[in-house]
Design a protein around this nucleic acid. Structure first.
Lengths: 170, 170
DNA sequence: CTGCCAACGTTGGCAAGACCAACAGTTCCT
DNA sequence: AGGAACTGTTGGTCTTGCCAACGTTGGCAG
């Protein structure tokens, strides 16, 4: 009767940051496994998503949108370019910059990734019902927005045109 | 008037795993900075907490309680031993094992760490009110428990004698 | 008792992620 | 004109989560 020899100390079980780290590790595994099956990592998905939504932009902007360091953006874009999912061309208007754009293949690929990522979300949130999921996610958004402001410049946390009471689904 | 040039793509802003990773990164920074001021990392705090709550145990057990790999436990215990916060002695009853125990200094040190960690929690949860914090934490516990079961052996998720008042269900 | 398997602690390694520092080329501002 | 700020790149650090191998020890089947 003691297979349950493992049990985190109560103090940790009540510490949100510890719980978050545990859960984030699980989440990374679930998402990571799926993306790995298509040969990419999570940053590639973030980059493709930003480009798909906002259109072509410089690597620096890409980094700001995805919260990635400039140096990491360099690596990610290089890998995506190799796969033909994006193009990277010098900006004639500002010769410091590269203009990064998604290709058709990139857009299609991103759709496939999105499905896999969506699956992972369901697995992650499995124990929560609909209402709990919404409250949980809302709290996450609130906190991420709050802490992002401290470092970054933007105030995207309270963005117009996205208040959705019902938040139905698409 | 476009300092808010940064804004994660909407698809990411609605993806719990992405939000979790962002927030977990912030949390790690907040906790990490504070622990660093006392010369330790997060794992040291976890180990000390487990030993403080459950008493002396083998390194393997310590790893199970804290969700740490055996190899990482070796490193952590070595560092804690160097600082005189724990002792590590061979178990006469089972010579494969080391018995790890907290010292008096270790217990006192853990208290100081606990205060710092607690501070970090407040900073992390700042944007949430009392009720939101409880619901958020409860959801975390639920999910961590759910996903821990899949790998580990134990069923600590539904442990008796710890039902909190706010922990209602949906 | 022997032989085998499981568990333990240790070492050494890997990959990912989050960062940081420095650099040369460019642009902007004064 | 000159300095400050930005861009992309290279190369590095540190932490975390793993995994493989090894020698030692314990438990168990035969």
């Amino acid at each position: 009767m003691d297979p349950a020899d493992d049990a985190p100390p109560a103090i940790l079980r009540r510490t949100p940051s510890w719980l978050m780290n545990q859960l984030a590790a699980h989440a990374q595994r679930m998402v990571g496994e799926r993306l790995e099956s298509l040969g990419v990592r999570r940053h590639h998905y973030s980059a493709l998503s930003a480009l798909a939504e906002f259109g072509p932009m410089s690597q620096a902007d890409l980094g700001r949108h995805t919260h990635l360091d400039r140096s990491d953006v360099t690596a990610v874009t290089s890998e995506l370019e190799e796969k033909g999912l994006i193009t990277r061309t010098p900006d004639p208007a500002d010769r410091r910059r590269n203009v990064v754009s998604v290709t058709e293949d990139g857009l299609a690929f991103r759709e496939r990734l999105a499905k896999l990522v969506s699956e992972a979300q369901d697995e992650l949130l499995a124990p929560l019902n609909e209402g709990e999921r919404e409250r949980f996610t809302a709290s996450l958004v609130q906190m991420v927005g709050h802490h992002a402001k401290r470092k970054g410049s933007g105030s995207w946390a309270t963005e117009p045109g996205e208040r959705k009471p019902g938040m139905g689904k698409g």
